[in-house]
Design a protein around this nucleic acid. Structure first.
Length: 552
RNA sequence: GCGCUUGUAGCUCAGUUUGGAUAGAGCGCGGCCCUGCGGAGGCUGAGGUCGUGGGUUCGAACCCCACCAAGCGUACCA
């Protein structure tokens, strides 16, 4: 990566300066290379002289001057200039830039991939809602964030597994089953009440009707406990299928669908509890069993087994993370949760510590919740009170591509209002179609070249030297940096901004540089550039889980 | 009360990790550009006390402190 190369060059310059006595022998601060916002400041810049100035108590500009003079020559660099107040600005060589078009074409869809991850095993777990109801729009945010992050991590050389955790055991499931039983009896014309803390949504009515249509009244004849059990399992199965369908429609694919139940079935729950007990992290008090997180600096202890001997969700989550790290041996685990789970973060970190797992290996990304609106009017999202807008409805209304783009264009930490009317309206104009339009436009040019039977494989890219061409090439070349940056920061929203930027510079290029002309040599060179742009744009869209249409 | 997250242009948001060069984008609003490969495009203008007040620094949207506002959490719910 060019950035690393510049750091090396600067380090050499500093070493030389210190050896020559032009710079005092101080410990070098971390060298940072940034991409200046202003194009006049070149392709890359370093503020190293400013940092050094403080340490050696010298004028930053004269340090910058010294370093520039001592920089070793490099084939990529046209110039390195000391600029007030003390930056070193690097500009790339035009012919080096244009040569990169050939290398993008050579790498094709693999352009931008790296070995950063060194094949490390990373799990990304996301969505993971209870199978008690359909997915709503807030969960969709986690789904899009998780699937996109997984795509990027794969591109940067991680061995990624995407996982969904079905909480199909415990308290909430019992409530769900009893709610369903009540709806079932109701749809057979009997009197029954959905429990007060139960699931009242209208989808439960539909679900009950569906089961009546399929199975008739056979569960009415069973005794209540047995009916609730059998009916409940059928209901859960149907909800799980629906969740899978919705996610598939959103283009979210999973490698593993993990069942909470399995933690009990294969004894891992008991195993981890014994382990914690042995480590002195378990205590009995007030009739319940507690995880003593205060011994790890937490504010309070947490119940793992209630006084009625039912384990809490926290208990199985402990077993689940034991399974992730110690049984399946992931090098890193990324959990993506909604902000309503933020209180769960510190205690899970404490669990990691108690199990001897370095807490950094467990990364928890919290995304803020989504407020759904329709024409400015607030829409309730809580599935426990019914009246919900499902992810399915949103996808049908605004389309999957627009949906993914909208969610991706915001950082996980931003609280977002998702206005359905606005999303539909805006997606007619911009920015989703703006980006996809660029791809369709490129496809159209390539079709024209194809019709004219132009073979551009021997095109000479060194003919590409005008400003719009070079600007486009520069933008193409920043994809590898972007992929690495997102892999490090886990912030895939930058992809959406990149896609827009790339579309913008392409449209500008298109305006200024006609591709297919009578000039055969220039046509071939530009076709190469256009094809390289198509590759990079499609790759960006695919990383975001969006389509790259050839026609619109 | 305490904790986490957020507050940047009329609206929706980047930029805050690593303090630096005139604070960016899209939408909306004003003005331009169609004899050419897809005008779902291009160019351009207006629009900002970076929540408020202090502090650190040669330099703060970014670091520190206080305050204000919003969301979430603070269960033997998940």
């Amino acid at each position: 990566m060019l950035r690393d190369r510049l750091i090396t060059l600067l380090t050499e310059a500093v070493n030389k300066a210190q050896k020559d006595g032009k710079l005092p022998a101080v410990v070098l601060p971390e060298i940072t290379i940034e991409r200046p916002q202003n194009a006049e400041h070149g392709d890359y810049a370093s503020n190293l002289p400013l940092k050094l100035a403080r340490l050696v108590k010298n004028n930053p500009m004269s340090i910058a001057g010294e370093l520039v003079a001592l920089l070793p020559p490099a084939e990529e660099i046209e110039s390195a200039v000391a600029t007030p107040p003390g930056f070193i600005n690097f500009t790339l060589k035009n012919d080096w830039l244009s040569r990169q078009v050939d290398s993008i074409l050579k790498d094709s869809e693999f352009f931008g991939n790296s070995k950063l991850g060194q094949g490390k095993k990373v799990q990304v777990e996301f969505v993971s809602i209870n199978p008690t109801g359909p997915i709503h729009v807030g969960h969709g945010r986690g789904a899009i964030l998780g699937s996109t992050l997984a795509n990027v991590l794969s591109a940067s050389g991680h061995k990624v597994e995407k996982e969904y955790y079905f909480n199909d055991a415990g308290n909430q499931m019992d409530i769900f089953k009893r709610s369903l039983y009540a709806r079932y009896l109701q749809s057979l014309g009997e009197k029954a009440e959905v429990p007060e803390n139960g699931y009242h949504g209208s989808y439960m009515v539909d679900l009950a009707k569906e089961i009546v249509a399929e199975y008739g009244d056979k569960f009415r004849k069973l005794d209540e406990a047995e009916a609730i059990k059998q009916l409940g399992e059928i209901g859960i199965g149907k909800i799980k299928d629906k969740i899978r369908e919705d996610l598939a429609q959103l283009r979210v694919e999973y490698d593993v669908w993990f069942r909470e139940q399995s933690l009990y079935e294969n004894g891992q729950y008991d195993k981890v509890m014994q382990l914690l007990r042995k480590g002195g992290y378990i205590a009995e008090k007030e009739g319940a069993t507690w995880f003593v997180s205060t011994s790890l600096g937490e504010d309070k202890d947490n119940v793992v087994v209630r006084s009625n001997s039912a384990p809490t969700y926290f208990a199985t989550d402990i077993a689940y993370h034991y399974n992730k790290f110690l049984e399946r041996k992931f090098d890193k685990v990324i959990d993506i949760w909604g902000a309503d789970h933020q209180g769960h973060v510190p205690r899970m970190k404490a669990v990691a510590t108690a199990l001897g797992i370095e807490p950094e290996r467990l990364q928890i990304i919290i995304h803020q919740l989504v407020t759904l609106k329709r024409g400015g009017e607030l829409v309730r999202v809580s599935k426990r009170t019914g009246d919900l807008i499902t992810l399915e409805e949103v996808m049908d209304e605004v389309g999957v591509d627009a949906c993914r783009f909208f969610f991706l264009a915001r950082s996980a930490t931003s609280q977002m209002d998702f206005d359905l009317e606005l999303a539909k309206k805006q997606s007619q104009d911009n920015p989703v179609y703006y980006v996809q339009y660029a791809h369709a436009r490129i496809a159209s040019i390539m079709r024209l070249a194809d019709e004219k039977k132009i073979d551009y494989s021997d095109g000479d890219v060194s003919l590409l030297k005008t400003q719009p061409e070079l600007t486009l090439i520069r933008k193409l070349l920043s994809l590898p940096e972007l992929i690495e940056m997102i892999s490090v920061t886990s912030e895939p929203h930058h992809l959406a901004y990149y896609a827009q930027d790339l579309a913008t510079v392409f449209h500008a290029f298109y305006k200024d540089c006609r591709v297919v002309t009578d000039d055969a040599a220039m046509t071939k060179a530009r076709l190469k550039l256009v094809m390289a742009t198509k590759t990079v744009l499609a790759k960006t869209l695919h990383l975001m889980g969006m389509t790259a249409p050839d026609r619109m």
